[in-house]
């Protein structure tokens, strides 16, 4: 076996170690790459900035711990942004795992900004049914969510006074890692009820939502950890999104190097056969 063949057949555990180092080293020794904000994230930020104090933002969390490193920083930045602008938050979710994550994010931001549960924010919890739940809530939120996530009747909470349906919600934000999620919110909340919808999604699903951005069905889109880092830059806060960008850059560089190297070997191999 010559060196090219040996490198092509390299044990994959060596590749694993190199990727691990590409992630660990920049976290231990930060570089501080500057983050450029893209238009979709700017659109998301502007959608929040346009709201008057006291406006109601519905944050629907349809993500889970598996996608937490991408979406949770967006969740945190969003709740901070909302509370900084004195917006009221109604939380809910189409995935059960998103509920405690959104709750933790709201509680953390509430502590920083002196907000109170039941007055400035509430978590209505989870319902199964995806598109059907959105349609039901669009017509009647109290009937669909008679209790909050912990089982307390929603009539007890000041924030729910006057909240009947989506007419009383000023912006809907879907933090989504798959189906049901952003697609269903756009189809029903925006498509049928004409509500403004913005979204934060995992990087895997972000490319598929660009048609919605282009057609104006989405106000803004945050895609993946990079999107979260851009949003954190806009609200001038540093979170996991920003801190992860150095590692993200180096790891991408390593993978691109692997791809180019593998294709160089492939071309050399093809020429040898000829």
């Amino acid at each position: 076996m010559n060196i090219v063949e040996r490198l092509e057949a390299i044990d994959r555990r060596i590749i694993f170690v190199l990727i691990l180092l590409a992630v660990v080293l920049p976290l231990l020794f930060p570089i501080g790459f500057k983050i450029i904000v893209s238009e979709p994230v700017q659109g998301f930020y502007d959608a929040i900035e346009e709201l008057a104090p006291g406006s109601v933002v519905l944050i629907s969390s349809e993500y889970d711990p598996a996608t937490m490193p991408e979406v949770y920083p967006m969740n945190q930045a969003l709740t901070r942004h909302c509370f900084a602008r004195d917006l009221r938050i109604i939380g809910m979710g189409l995935w059960p795992q998103g509920i405690p994550l959104n709750q933790a994010s709201m509680e953390q931001a509430a502590e920083e900004y002196g907000k109170e549960y039941g007055v400035d924010y509430i978590n209505l919890g989870y319902k199964v049914g995806g598109i059907v739940v959105i349609s039901a809530a669009a017509e009647n939120i109290p009937t669909t969510f008679p209790q909050d996530y912990a089982g307390r009747p929603i009539e007890e909470f000041e924030i729910m006074e006057g909240i009947k349906n989506f007419d009383n919600v000023d912006l809907i934000v879907s933090l989504s890692a798959g189906d049901p999620g952003t697609r269903q919110w756009v189809m029903i909340a925006q498509g049928r009820y004409g509500k403004k919808v913005a979204s934060g999604v995992t990087a895997v699903s972000a490319p598929a939502f660009y048609p919605y951005l282009n057609s104006g069905q989405l106000e803004g889109l945050i895609g993946g950890m990079k999107g979260a880092a851009e949003y954190e830059t806009l609200i001038e806060e540093s979170g996991l999104g920003t801190q992860g960008m150095d590692a993200q850059s180096i790891a991408h560089g390593v993978i691109i190097f692997f791809i180019i190297l593998a294709n160089v070997f492939y071309i050399i191999g093809k020429r040898r056969k000829k």
Partner: peptide
């Protein structure tokens, strides 16, 4: 849950090297 999916980073790197031609 997080770690299960974090494993994919290693496999995508390995697959990029071995299969992406």
């Amino acid at each position: 849950s997080s770690t299960m999916f974090a494993l994919l980073a290693f496999f995508v790197a390995s697959a990029s090297y071995r299969a992406f031609r």
